[in-house]
Design a protein around this nucleic acid. Structure first.
Lengths: 206, 206
DNA sequence: AATGACCTACCGAATAGTTGGTAAAATCAA
DNA sequence: TTGATTTTACCAACTATTCGGTAGGTCATT
């Protein structure tokens, strides 16, 4: 009880409350940008959705472009924590591949708007920012490709060019955001199972 | 008779020149929009690229939005002529599937900017226009799905949900525009072969 | 008194689209 | 064929609006 009070008090004192608000801003911005596109979303739109004026919102952010950059970095953190980290901890290449498909697929189907923005709104960034994000994307792509290469070494992969196969696999996963609807017939778990079937029989030697 | 022929010829020359110019406008617009995005491409940008003033360009188009719509319809015509028509003429489901992957893949890798726009810039359209384009996209998707269903009936398809498989396949193909570079190591034909390998071993029973 | 969390009111730049023209080409009448 | 008329293919200049961003203020909390 006392502990809680202290925690609450501390929360009030600045940084946590601040970062709560920042998180909320990122979330609201991501939702809007994901729905309407970066250029079509004005700073005022975001401010309105936050029940702030534009100038009020500018108290928290330092420009529209940097806000987009932050949202994208948030998406990359999610990707790192929920997909790459678990994959790194899995020594078996086959299970690692399945983990990647499952975790990345679920993130997208559960509607992570930052993740969608990460793919669609690169043009809104500075060239420097683009390069930084691109570097992270390539690192992710490398994880997938290396896993496929490892499978090939174990003779568990069909005779594919691992690079093309990795891109194709990622394309398949990312495209989920364009067609999967939560109101539809299939649950996200069911779709993951279907994807895994394709991966198992398509990429992996039988 | 001769007079009519001459008139027709002249009419043809006139309207052909016109539609040549229109085609050129669509092409230039598509290239710019594909490179920078719809919102970030101003009508003046397109006019400049056409060596016209904005007012001069407006002589040919009736608004930015309708121009985008026309470009997208142009992409759909390409899809119809170069992918769907050839597929319709192929009775064998297996070969039909291969034709789709090959033809659609090649269009994208050879840099059809209208095709990329078709996927990325739906938000720039009226709702009515969006619905019209979406209808065509769904028709294409249905062709792929029905082909997969047919293969399943012939017992040549692994036990997939044809709907999910169709989406995944299309996602794989469309993603080509995001990673394939003509300056890279692989030729478009080579990539097509890789995709077909994935399709053959992944979607089709061995 | 100082700081954080806002707001009102504004600015400069850019943009989609229009108006009112001109010069040349195409069409038509004699 | 020629002269008159209409149409085509443009352009310079302008309007109205929107947008990203800022200056300078208020007010409550600390």
């Amino acid at each position: 009880m006392i502990a809680k009070k202290i925690k609450d008090a501390k929360a009030t004192v600045g940084s946590e409350r601040m970062s709560n608000k920042m998180a909320q801003i990122y979330d609201v911005a991501a939702t809007l940008i994901c729905a309407k596109g970066y250029d079509a979303t004005s700073v005022s739109d975001i401010a309105d959705a936050m029940n702030l004026t534009k100038a009020g919102l500018y108290h928290y952010i330092d420009g529209k472009q940097n806000l987009l950059f932050s949202v994208m970095n948030f998406a990359l953190e999610t990707l790192e924590e929920d997909v790459i980290e678990p994959a790194r901890d899995e020594p078996d290449a086959m299970r690692r591949l399945e983990l990647i498909v499952r975790n990345h697929g679920l993130i997208i189907m559960r509607g992570s708007s930052p993740m969608t923005i990460l793919m669609d709104e690169m043009g809104g960034l500075t060239e420097t920012q683009q390069e930084e994000i691109q570097k992270c994307k390539l690192a992710y792509y490398a994880v997938v490709r290396d896993t496929l290469k490892e499978l090939k070494k174990e003779d568990k992969l069909n005779d594919f060019n691992p690079s093309t196969a990795a891109h194709s696999l990622i394309g398949m996963i990312l495209y989920l955001s364009r067609w999967y609807r939560r109101e539809g017939k299939m649950s996200d778990e069911q779709v993951v199972e279907e994807l895994l079937k394709i991966v198992r029989s398509g990429f992996v030697k039988v």
